[in-house]
Nucleic acid binder design. Structure first.
Lengths: 112, 112
DNA sequence: TTACAATATCGATTGATATCGATGAATTGG
DNA sequence: CCAATTCATCGATATCAATCGATATTGTAA
């Protein structure tokens, strides 16, 4: 899990929108290979919801995959994209613990 | 709080490193205007800990300030940089709640 | 095996970004 | 007021990134 790669991948409007879309995709896919309870999309789903050329969408998805934020799996003629839960959860934790050190009381030092 | 601007600001090695440095800066400043219990840095602190030209560091700090991740305050001849806790906390919360919708059981629907 | 549908890849263009050295502006101490 | 210190801004350069249309690839169905 490379946090900088993840920040970079999400630090762009189009890609951020694609990722949010994928997180909230339950039951929205046009693709028969995707069950309604799956939060998953094929490329066509994205092209219908975003004003971007198909090639641009494929490119952005590849960036998300490279950052390991998203996984892709072939089902027939479709490529099915899903959030990589392991990476995303790890990233959420990473952000959550990124806080200023609390001034430690004597007697509690070095107990990290 | 613009999440994409924050992702973008942290999606670059040098800037990410500066931000982490600032979060963990307690008692490390060379600047007499900064108390040891403050997590704060002047530009000189950054130049001593990162292999970047001073102008580059100032540029990156400006990007962090523009994203409202960092605040700056003049103290005498120094500019003192600190994490903007309000923005950072809001961003942490934003990331934390960005998860896949759970399939809801009947009887629990609409109770968000 | 051919044709079609879905998607990736390629090449080009335009614009943004990271970095540096040099210089300018603000603040304080003498 | 002058000099020194701290820092921002400027101008230049080189690299990277976003986007598109066109084309290639892959898998399936007729």
């Amino acid at each position: 899990m490379d946090p900088v790669a993840i920040f970079r991948a999400l630090g762009q409007q189009s890609r951020y929108a694609l990722f949010i879309d994928l997180l909230r995709a339950n039951g929205t896919s046009c693709c028969a290979e995707i069950a309604p309870e799956e939060s998953a999309c094929c490329v066509i789903d994205f092209t219908q919801r975003h004003r971007l050329a198909q090639s641009t969408i494929s490119h952005h998805l590849q960036v998300l995959v490279d950052a390991q934020l998203v996984e892709v799996e072939r089902r027939g003629t479709y490529q099915v994209y899903q959030v990589n839960q392991e990476t995303w959860t790890a990233f959420q934790r990473h952000v959550a613990v990124l806080t200023q050190d609390q001034p430690m009381a004597i007697g509690r030092r070095l107990q990290l």
